[in-house]
Amino acid sequence: MTRRPVRHFSLLGIVWDDPEAELHGRVQVRTRAADTGTWSGWQDVETHNADHAADRGTPESTSGRVRGATAPLWVGDSDGVELRVRSRPERAEAASAHHGTGTRNLAAAPPLPYGLRLELVDPGDDAPPPGTSADGPRTADLAGEASAATEASVVNADLAPLDATEIPALNAAETAQEFLGLNAGELTEQQQARPYVGPRPRIVTRRGWGANEGLRERGFRYTKKVKAAFVHHTASGNNYRCSQVPSLIRSIYRYHVKSMGWRDIGYNFVIDKCGKIYEGRAGGVARPVLGAHTLGFNNNSMGIAVLGSYGVKKPSSAAVKAIARLTAWKLGLHGMNPRGKTYLKSAGSNLHRKGKKVRLNVISGHRDGFKTSCPGRKLYGKLGSARSKAARYQGR
């Protein structure tokens, strides 16, 4: 087999043409570290990723740009890759016509999706200056690109100065004062006297992690309020250092937009294993930004993704605490009790039919809205602790 040269990359994934098609099989890769030339062992790429998406029938899902895709996998700075994709035969039960006994037969292996291709993502060092991209120079509307960066910052102007790289943490008293200011004239006397909102945590802005605002679709889309938080894991592996997280988020952002065809990164917030919180989809961290994180339940909710894979590995206590701090604040802005229940109307998933009003925990796991392994068994098992901590942060 002829080897083809590749440029440096740090994240990879597999995409295909039809977003409704599924990849029934196993995808494995091994990569060559750019600094040592050492090849890694074979790693599995999570193939079931369609449950992270915009709701069906929305402008984002019907744009004509959307593709099917695996979850992205973070591999670090690499300059070589080998890939193997195997279609997995499905077992079928068949009854013997002569003996009436059950026998197990192997069904034919399902075909692989059409247009299957490997995507290699280079996060770059930071946000490319206007007029360039991670792929090199390009023609661009420089004024428009600068405007997009300003647009993404202005929506947080009530919380931090323009072009801030982070939104600072506030104490309980400062947060209550800010809450009353943000909701002037809209609160009951009881809410004014006792606003159940957790102290605002420190949040790294899109500028802080180096988002190239020229990649995403312009403008923002909002839902009415935030009634629930869905917790996810990115299934991108745990082999990252916290110092690499800005690069990792830039890579996921580019994978969601350029490889998968979404309007922006799908998650509203991202949390790393060191407990740092990052702004995800643009539109303002205090606002009800419509995301693409939980197929069927993106309306009136927010998506929080913990970087890593938590099927067998426990999430760090710092990450669980960050979930609690973030939800105590953001859900508190919308009057929601983290230990409570709420109803969301399904837009259609493999677990809940379209139009069904579903009773959910205010802090739910992805698997509560869609039949999926996300956010991983170990992280899902920590959500009860996150709910209790978040309620305490709100003073409940």
Rank of each mutant, 00 (worst) to 15 (best):
H99W: 06
I249N: 00
N212K: 13
K224T: 05
P111S: 09
E189P: 00
M336S: 10
A390E: 03
G311F: 14
N268R: 15
A33S: 02
T38I: 05
R88A: 09
A176L: 08
E189W: 10
A324I: 03
Y267M: 14
R32V: 00
G76I: 09
L112V: 07
V75K: 03
I304E: 09
G395C: 10
V6P: 04
G395M: 08
V6R: 07
P113E: 00
S96L: 09
L295Q: 07
G198S: 06
G296N: 06
V66Q: 04
R207W: 10
T38M: 06
V320N: 13
P246M: 14
N238V: 15
R339W: 03
E166V: 11
T70H: 00
Y267H: 09
F9E: 15
V29K: 03
L12G: 10
R218G: 08
R392C: 14
L344G: 07
M1R: 03
A176C: 04
R138D: 00
S243Y: 08
N361M: 05
K345Y: 04
T38E: 13
G395Q: 12
K330M: 11
R88Q: 15
G198E: 09
R263C: 00
L331S: 05
G335E: 07
V270H: 02
D44M: 08
V245R: 11
G340W: 10
W209Y: 14
T36N: 11
R287L: 14
A33N: 04
D264K: 04
A169I: 03
D79V: 03
S349A: 14
K356L: 11
T188W: 04
Y114Q: 08
P111R: 08
N238Q: 07
W74A: 11
G144L: 08
L351W: 00
T188R: 06
P315R: 12
T2P: 13
G144A: 12
A235N: 15
D77T: 07
P128E: 11
R216A: 15
G291R: 02
E119H: 14
G283V: 06
G280M: 12
T47P: 11
S78A: 13
G144S: 11
D158N: 15
E151I: 00
G100L: 02
L333R: 05
K382D: 12
A146S: 05
G355L: 11
F9V: 08
Y255Q: 00
P111M: 04
R263T: 08
K227R: 12
R32H: 03
N49S: 10
S388Y: 00
T188Q: 12
G237S: 12
L326Q: 06
L248Q: 01
C274S: 13
R84P: 02
T234A: 13
A140Y: 01
P111D: 05
G185A: 06
K371Q: 07
I271C: 03
A228I: 03
A140R: 05
I277P: 00
P123R: 07
R202P: 08
D126C: 13
H99T: 13
T223R: 14
A92K: 13
R216Q: 04
T188A: 00
A173K: 09
V75M: 12
A94C: 02
D35W: 01
A193W: 12
F269D: 10
G284S: 07
